[in-house]
Design a protein around this nucleic acid. Structure first.
Lengths: 146, 146
DNA sequence: TTTAATTCGGATAAAATTGTCCTATTTAAT
DNA sequence: ATTAAATAGGACAATTTTATCCGAATTAAA
């Protein structure tokens, strides 16, 4: 698995909130977890993490909820969400778990994975939150089984 | 993380056993866990899995241990070990956790990950156990911190 | 000012993964 | 036969991840 379950939910939730934020709509945790088919309380915890990471914003109280600023809609990339939730990326760590795997002291698959990791990082840096939400809005992709 | 901890140990152990098997040496779990720096009892469990999957062979009793047949030394690829331990691969599952993600009903990152997954699968199918062990034997890579 | 809708966050529980321990079984050597 | 060295495998423990529950705090509307 590339992402933890928490990260999967976090990405799907972010895309959903982004989709609503494009049309200035705010959404609450109940809607979010229903629309992305995720456990409500657990998803709420993950959203807290994303709020702390300043990726999404929360508004407390009645008629509150979650939203994403117009600035962040353009700024946030897939990699930002992944790092906020899962922390250090596969990119940085040895796939065989060696503490000091490097160019100088590589594990037996270091070179094979080097290129894959680079492509993965590059792709995640170039996958925009707004683009993901637009694709869902256009019906080209989805966030749960239809 | 790409591989589970169990899989990391399993791959490192396989490479070590392969290295010894090239010169017809058999090795026991104590040596293996020392040489790859892994928890002994846990590694023993993982080796059982690899024995059942017919990737490595075990010989019981005094002067027994683990070895890899000359045939398997040539036949086994990284992907075989990964599938034996971790089961279904990232390759087959949706990175955002959707049950029915496909070309017809893709998640918002399906197309981006499609290429990465293909490259990853291809690489793992072409990474030979023998090549990994040869690289360690030649001092070009290692299985634990030196 | 009261109420209802909401997030926040601490405590806890459940499940999965990682790791340990111990006994049984096997086998070669003495 | 006995012994020592090894894997096999069941039971269990620790840790991490996933998930739930509930009361406190916040806020807009009535």
């Amino acid at each position: 698995m590339i992402f933890s379950k928490a990260c999967e939910y976090g990405i799907r939730a972010s895309v959903y909130i982004a989709q609503k934020s494009v049309s200035k709509e705010r959404c609450n945790i109940k809607d979010i977890s229903k629309e992305i088919d995720s456990p409500e309380a657990f998803t709420a915890k993950i959203l807290q993490t994303l709020v702390h990471a300043q990726i999404i914003q929360s508004v407390k109280g009645a008629f509150g909820g979650f939203e994403i600023t117009q600035k962040n809609l353009r700024k946030i990339k897939l990699i930002d969400i992944a790092i906020a939730i899962d922390g250090t990326l596969y990119d940085k760590t040895c796939v065989l778990g060696l503490k000091h795997c490097s160019e100088n002291q590589p594990c037996p698959v270091h070179n094979q994975f080097k290129h894959i990791k680079k492509d993965l990082l590059c792709m995640m840096q170039n996958t925009h939150l707004l683009a993901m939400s637009t694709s869902v809005e256009a019906g080209l992709s989805c966030l749960k089984i239809a």
